[in-house]
Design a protein around this nucleic acid. Structure first.
Lengths: 238, 238
DNA sequence: ATACAATTTTAGGTATGACTAATTCTCGAA
DNA sequence: TTCGAGAATTAGTCATACCTAAAATTGTAT
């Protein structure tokens, strides 16, 4: 008896949803999603990934395509489910931040658990209360119900030169400690950064933090921070 | 290797939490909580209950006491955990109703899933937003963080005589269809009911629905409804 | 006292989803 | 072209939590 899966979500286990979500997230940044890459991000052993991948490829309809030793690709069905889970995750993050006063370093862990259990009704009500938000508290786009996703900046702070002025548009959500640290420095979404100095060889970057109107503040950011902060050039300052 | 459990919640599986919660709920209404009673309420087979009960009795410290063919009793630890789960459940129900506009027939199913995954921080924030509510949307008491529970009426509508005037204080949450039906009749918490007629042999009860100020309305309720509605005598009308 | 009916427990099996250990595959370098 | 390192897969285990079927226990009624 191979287990068969048909409709988007509601039928998948939590583990299966996590795999699909992670695959979609990794597809965006890696040209090939490999077993070991998945294993790292899901914090399981590669052998476990192989097993689950084979199951998801066997499902009917298949959630992903898979050839031994190659890598995985989501099918439209798999992608649809993954988008649904990511929508849940980011909507919940935004709700926790907006409606319940969560700090941006805490929302990810909570959303990780809630994303798998909320009903479509709750999803809809949360979205409605928030006015159908397009971004989560880290600047990641919230997929719409039909699966469309707003494009976001892929320009990391590592790519910015001294003298340039940028606005923070996205910060990776995977390191709560960094998020707390950045918040303490006043670095949040839409914060304006003026790059003061760039040490060579990807050394620390010194910048001035402050919106047009707020106080200025100088801080140094090492790689690890600059890698995880994405920006856009400030209008009229390009 | 017997698995051992120490601290309240966070360490228990969803299934274990459901067992403890159900045992506590049943202890309130049945003098003895038996395998088959649990099996019925948890919608599993009696053999499965035996297995889980034995595991919970073996945990260290034990969540419950158990003697073959007798019945189960929660230990203080088990009771503490059960109260925590019930607190989660009812807080979430109240939050869904108050903050997100859920109807009272939908909150139970959603809370059933959420109760097992929310963090203590989320529990606290929800309670704070609601102003530490004492009752859920069905009139069930929400245990406080220290485990105290407000007493509620145990007077079912079946015990009320013609001519008496009562206020609805609690309705069982286990039948969404009944809840929708009652809502349609205007029967909600605090609604005033004036009993018009009692058919003998637990036949249908006819009553007038309406708060002091609202329009009156006559309806008949069968057993199954009257069994599930709990009331208090209206002040000054006893 | 005993026997039956209902309840409960034991024994054995399934599915999920992780693990380790051992094997196999792929691909780049010599 | 062959070799070896690293990546991936297979094979075999384990724990959870359910199931069915068979055996055992309880209490009640004769």
């Amino acid at each position: 008896m191979t287990n068969s899966r048909i409709r988007a979500s509601e039928i998948l286990t939590r583990a299966e949803e996590d795999y699909l979500k992670t695959i979609l997230e990794l597809e965006e940044e890696h040209e090939s999603v490999t077993t070991s890459l998945l294993a790292t991000h899901l914090r399981v052993k590669p052998a476990s990934v192989t097993g689950m991948i084979q199951k998801l490829a066997r499902s009917r309809p298949p959630c992903l395509h898979y050839e031994s030793h190659r890598g995985v690709t989501l099918t439209p069905v798999g992608r649809q489910i993954a988008l649904e889970v990511i929508r849940h995750h980011r909507l919940i993050e935004q709700y926790l931040a907006q409606a319940l006063g969560y700090d941006w370093d805490k929302v990810d862990a909570e959303a990780e658990k809630l994303e798998h259990v909320i009903s479509e009704e709750l999803e809809d009500r949360i979205a409605a209360v928030l006015g159908d938000p397009i971004f989560d508290p880290h600047g990641d786009p919230i997929p719409s119900k039909d699966g469309s996703v707003t494009a976001t900046s892929r320009l990391p702070l590592t790519a910015i030169q001294a003298g340039q002025v940028v606005r923070v548009t996205r910060v990776r959500d995977d390191d709560p400690e960094l998020l707390r640290y950045l918040a303490g420095l006043g670095i949040r979404l839409q914060a304006r950064l003026t790059i003061v100095e760039r040490a060579p060889f990807e050394g620390p970057l010194t910048c001035q933090v402050g919106g047009a109107e707020t106080e200025a503040r100088i801080c140094a950011l090492g790689r690890g921070a600059t890698d995880r902060i994405f920006v856009e050039f400030d209008e009229g300052t390009g």
